[in-house]
Amino acid sequence: MVMVDGSMGGGQLVRTAATFAALTGESVEVTDVRGAREEAGLKRQHVAALEAVAAACDADLAGAEVGSERVAVDPGALDGGETRIDVGTAGSVPLILDAVLPLAARLEAPYRVTVSGGTDVQWAPPLDYLTEVKLPVLRAHGLDASVTPTRRGFYPAGGGAVTLTVRPSTLTALDLRERGRLRHLAVESAASESLREADVAARQADAAVEALQSTAAVPVLRESAYDETASSGSVVTVVAAYEHVRAGFSALGERGTPAEAVAEDAVESFRAFDRTAASTDAHLADQLLPYLALAGGVYTTPERTAHLETHADLLGTFGFDVDVADADGVVRVSR
């Protein structure tokens, strides 16, 4: 059994430990779950991720309940199937789906999971980052997966719903040493229907497009939409499509913050990244680690984050050694 010290990180350690238990067929036990956090133990979104992975491989779970500081996963065969999971809170749906996506590398049959919860919330990649940044990059390297959103969910009620279908896939190496030239930019802006009268989604999109057009001499695409949601909210994502890879930069609307200021936050994050020579943004660098572990490759990122290092260390526990090293003003990640 693989033993993991959960105090070294947060929910990511739990999700990835379950994912790699399913991928390798090795049982795993995570102790002192989120032990360094103010509220230790599993939260509902962590339990939901465990359930999503377990359903794909008929795993036995022990301790998979809210508040538990120890959880064990004993996986079976990755036979796929179909399941539905309701987080019951605004816990991040994209993070739960992140735990499922790598299973494609070992699946014997397709697996479909519908998750209800928060699609666009703090401390997690928004839905548009998953669909417009991460998935296109992974599809270019062999992943066969599709995402069908039904509705968005903002904090605190959540209530969003997304269906992910993953199919048996042969992953190819992530050869992303360089990002190449910037081909185009895209702005994805969304807001609750209750904010339509204030033109929130349109204002976010317009402000972002205007700022980007003064920043880069490439086409800037624009999409804005309104959705019926249980709680009011908004989100804007700037997608940078480079020659070899994509990057994404998002901001969530907050009460009292003008839509234009929300857009500027996302645009400024893009500007800061574009000034570097890195091939992947910091979030993608972390999220690509499971695929790097499975298929090999190399990419660079602007900074060495605690998430990146903790994630790499965990993969080493399963026998997948990933090298994280400083190199010419960027951080090189390779296997």
Rank of each mutant, 00 (worst) to 15 (best):
D286R: 15
G248M: 12
S250R: 03
V115T: 01
P126S: 09
A217G: 07
V147T: 11
V71W: 05
S27Y: 11
A312S: 05
A247D: 06
V162Q: 00
A208N: 10
A186Q: 15
V73W: 14
V147M: 11
L289E: 00
V218I: 06
L174Q: 09
D313F: 12
V166H: 01
R304L: 07
V4S: 02
G159D: 04
E39L: 15
T317F: 14
R139I: 07
V236D: 02
V218W: 04
D227Q: 15
V93E: 06
L164Y: 04
R15I: 08
S334P: 00
L284K: 10
H141G: 03
T257W: 12
A64C: 10
L195S: 05
V330Q: 03
A173R: 10
H307P: 01
A208T: 03
T114F: 06
L127R: 04
V121A: 06
G253E: 02
V235M: 04
Q12F: 13
A263L: 10
A191K: 14
L143Y: 04
M1E: 13
Y226C: 02
D328I: 07
A272E: 12
E26M: 09
T31Y: 03
T301M: 08
L212Q: 02
G117C: 09
E26V: 09
A56D: 02
G159H: 00
R44W: 12
D60R: 15
D265V: 13
Q12S: 09
H311R: 08
V331G: 01
E39D: 13
A40P: 11
E29Q: 11
F273Y: 10
A190T: 15
T148R: 15
E108Y: 09
V330N: 06
L13S: 03
L50S: 00
E69W: 03
V209P: 00
L130D: 01
Y111N: 00
G158T: 11
G80Y: 13
Y242N: 08
